[in-house]
Amino acid sequence: MDRLIQNTLIDLFADHGIQLEADEDWLLTEGEDFPAIRGIWHEGKEGGMGRLDIDIVLDEERTIEESFGGVGGGKAGCRDALDAFARNDFHVVLAACWHTVNAEKVAVRELAVGMHRFTVYVGDFTLRGDEGAPMDIPEDALSALDAAITTAPLSEDVHWIRVFYGNVGDGRTQVEVLLDNEPWTAGLKAIVSADWPQHERYYSLRNLIALVPAD
């Protein structure tokens, strides 16, 4: 499975002009120690959903940690999870860590946070679950999240925010907002406060946002 993951990531980056080479479990840009990326697949128990962990090392102290569920067993599940990474996080990671921006896949803007200015890369919200679920992202969710970001105690480093919204049905939801891999209360309140569309069946939406210190 490790070879499948590495070959898929190598091909994905190569399609966007980035050549990676293997160094044991990690994939590196030639001649550079950072950034480095790897994927680890965890098979689901008793035919359940497996999990792909993607780690992107920014420097000796900071690592972006993301996980994706994969439907199906073995290689099929792993490929499904890799596809989820390609559709969701990949273009944000490519822009923030490898400085290659696909304007069709990420929104780019500037944002002041305290004394620092950041270039913000916002990925698409991607849908999993019921294909008939609504895909309209509430504008108040994004504006509330922006307000939370501008008051966050951010250092002059790369930061990343992961938003997950799950519509369980019957008015129930599952919501998670992480800042630099850690639960972020202000971001969670911002997302929960929005008027998200309800649906009778389960669906989930997730996206990744990266903040890079502006030159």
Rank of each mutant, 00 (worst) to 15 (best):
C97D: 11
E176I: 08
D170L: 12
D83I: 10
E46D: 14
G171T: 07
I5A: 12
V175Q: 00
T63W: 09
K75V: 00
Q174R: 11
I37V: 15
I5T: 12
D15S: 13
E65G: 04
W196Y: 05
G73I: 10
N7T: 07
D140K: 00
E131D: 11
W196G: 07
P153N: 08
P134A: 00
L4E: 15
P183N: 09
V168W: 05
E24I: 07
V120D: 01
L58H: 09
H91W: 08
I64C: 02
E182G: 02
D215Q: 10
A186Q: 12
V175E: 01
G132I: 03
V177H: 01
D170F: 11
A76S: 10
R201P: 03
F90C: 05
W98G: 08
L178D: 08
R38M: 00
R62F: 02
G17I: 06
V113C: 13
I149V: 12
I40W: 14
F68R: 04
S204Y: 01
K105L: 05
L28A: 04
V71S: 05
S67T: 14
A14N: 11
T150M: 14
E46G: 10
D59P: 00
G129E: 03
N181W: 07
R172W: 09
N88D: 10
E66I: 07
V163Q: 03
E61A: 08
L58K: 07
E200I: 10
A190H: 06
G69E: 07
V108T: 14
V101Q: 03
S67Q: 15
L52M: 04
F164D: 05
L208R: 02
G44A: 06
I64W: 05
N167E: 13
A112D: 15
A107L: 11
V93G: 05
N181E: 12
I209C: 04
A214S: 10
V175F: 04
P35H: 11
R38I: 00
I54V: 15
P213C: 13
I191Y: 04
V177L: 11
E61Q: 12
D140N: 08
D80W: 05
V113I: 14
G166P: 12
L154V: 10
E46M: 14
A194V: 04
V158G: 13
R201V: 02
E61T: 13
L154P: 07
A36G: 09
V122A: 09
T8C: 03
N7D: 13
P213V: 13
M135K: 01
L58E: 06
D15T: 06
H116E: 12
R79K: 14
S155N: 09
I209N: 01
V71C: 08
F13V: 02
D80F: 15
Y121Q: 06
P35G: 11
I56M: 10
T150S: 10
D157M: 15
D195N: 01
